[in-house]
Each structure stands twice: as structure tokens, then as C-alpha cells.
């Protein structure tokens, strides 16, 4: 960050990267969404409720939720081995657990609901972008939901709490805190943290994540409205979140 508090990509501390969301991009899927957030390009697709395989794992009282977060080999600087890494397995688990509180799985006993999150190009905050897109894909698939789930990361760069880390800030900053919540129910569904935060910085980070997340929520909601109510959402919402705020 320079002396005026401007970050490497020209943003202020509380500014999001440009964000663009489109719902219904995978024809075969029951629901899908594409999110472009900074350099992130991520598709989330949902299939289900459908028959559970393997059969013996089906749950008598609710749907079995599955999630696969995967990065394309060409999504990062050095080619990534396409086999699922331990990191991807952990992220698949936390994404699933971040979305599950929003779902009425009990409405679909003995079935499976599968979420695929494919990172086509990765930048900082791919898991929160994946969650934001997945929530839309689930809504697009018509799964009964209590609320949307919106993800947004905060971090610490040069001793200051900043919103929405990009790749460079994620690698060189001194802290990262991915966060997801249900905006209308005020429930936190994902929180991970690494790096050093004092207690006050931690509280400040949670506040900022929520403020940033509400901006993402606005775009998320508009993307959904755009698909289902033609002319429902303003067309300008392909711009950055900051532009949207002024609009």
C-alpha cells in the first residue's frame, strides 16, 4: 500500500474488486452461475435433488449434500496437477458446510444434491467467490432456501485491515480471513483465518467482511432477478460494486 492508502491494484482499503455475476450458464445443470471477481473466473453448477449414489449412503430424513471444489490445471501461474489436492478437499468441505445452513435439505429425503465449483482462473478469495456463485446456482436449481449465502474475504496488508484481497495481497499480506454469511438471518456460515490479528483487528475484520459482503449480496440478488424477471435488475450491474453503490 502506498502512503495515500492506495493498494497495488489502485483500490482503497474498503473497496471490492470488479464483480460480475451471471445466473444460468450451464445448460444441462439444474442451476448454475458464473462469477468473475477480480481475476477469478468460477462456474458453480448444481444437479439435484436426484437419486443418491451410492444408495446405502442416502439419508432417510433429508438430502445428502455433496460439494466438489476443483481448480483447473491452467487456473494458476504454474500448472496445477488436476488430481484433487488436500487443499481442495478441505475447501470442498468448508464450502459445503457454509451452504448447508441455508438449505431445507429435509424437504428432499433420500436424494442427493451435488454442487460443482470449478475454478477456471484463480485470484485471491476463490472460495468465497465459489460460495457466492454456488448459493445462486442452488437458488437457480429451485432448491428451497432460508437465505442466500454470500462470501467475502478480508485481510491484513501493511498492518491495515483491508477488504477483498487479491492474489498478491493474499500471498504477501500478513493475514487472510475468508468469511461467508446469510445476510438476512445474520448467521456466519464460514470463517477461516490465518495470519496475525489482534482482538480489535479481528472485530474490525468481521465488521468489514459484513459490510463488503452486503455489497456483494446486492449484486448477487440482482443477478438472480435478471434471469427470472427480465428487466428486473439494472443492466449496469456488470460494473464494479463501487459503481453500483453510486448508481
Amino acid at each position: 500500500m502506498d502512503e495515500n492508502g492506495i493498494r497495488t491494484d489502485g483500490r482503497r482499503w474498503d473497496e471490492l474488486r470488479p464483480l460480475k455475476i451471471e445466473v444460468g450458464v450451464v445448460k444441462n445443470a439444474d442451476g448454475s452461475a458464473l462469477i468473475e471477481w477480480g481475476k477469478n473466473k468460477i462456474i458453480a453448477a448444481v444437479y439435484g435433488p436426484k437419486e443418491m449414489h451410492p444408495k446405502h449412503l442416502e439419508l432417510a430424513d433429508r438430502a445428502f449434500l455433496k460439494c466438489r471444489y476443483h481448480m483447473a490445471p491452467f487456473s494458476v501461474d504454474e500448472r496445477k496437477n488436476p488430481a484433487p489436492s488436500r487443499r481442495e478437499i478441505e475447501i470442498s468441505k468448508v464450502i459445503r458446510e457454509a451452504l448447508q445452513p441455508a438449505l431445507f435439505l429435509e424437504d428432499y429425503p433420500r436424494t442427493a444434491i451435488q454442487i460443482y465449483v470449478e475454478v477456471l482462473q484463480s485470484d485471491g478469495g476463490s472460495r468465497v467467490a465459489g460460495i457466492t456463485a454456488s448459493a445462486l446456482a442452488l437458488a437457480d436449481a429451485g432448491i428451497n432456501m432460508r437465505d442466500l449465502v454470500v462470501g467475502c474475504a478480508v485481510g491484513k496488508v501493511d498492518g491495515k485491515i483491508v477488504l477483498d484481497l487479491n492474489d498478491t495481497e493474499d500471498k504477501e499480506g500478513s493475514g487472510d480471513l475468508p468469511y461467508a454469511f446469510m445476510p438476512n438471518l445474520n448467521q456466519v456460515t464460514l470463517l477461516q483465518m490465518d495470519g496475525l490479528f489482534t482482538f480489535d483487528e479481528f472485530k474490525q475484520a468481521l465488521e468489514l467482511a459484513k459490510v463488503g459482503g452486503m455489497k456483494v449480496y446486492k449484486l448477487q440478488r440482482e443477478a438472480l432477478l435478471r434471469k427470472y424477471f427480465s428487466g428486473g435488475g439494472p443492466e449496469t450491474s456488470t460494473g464494479s460494486a463501487e459503481m453500483m453503490e453510486e448508481a
Binding site: L65, K93, V94, R96, E97, Q100, P101, L177, F181, M182, L185, N186, Q187, V188, T189, L190, L191, Q192, M193, D194, G195, L196, F197, T198, F199, F202, K203, L206, K210
Partner: peptide, 27 residues
């Protein structure tokens, strides 16, 4: 850590917390 800073965190399992509960957990 030794200075009372938070240095790592992870929420798990398919439920949720309120922001206030997270602050209590940190305390």
C-alpha cells in the same frame, strides 16, 4: 499466540454462528 493475538481459525460443520457468538468464542 503468546501476545493474545489471533493467528488461525476455522469454522466447521454444517451449522452457523452469530457474529456476537464469534466474538465470545475469540474472548
Amino acid at each position: 499466540d503468546d501476545d493474545g493475538n489471533l493467528c488461525a481459525g476455522q469454522k466447521g460443520e454444517p451449522g452457523s454462528f452469530t457474529p456476537e457468538q464469534i466474538i465470545t468464542a475469540a474472548e
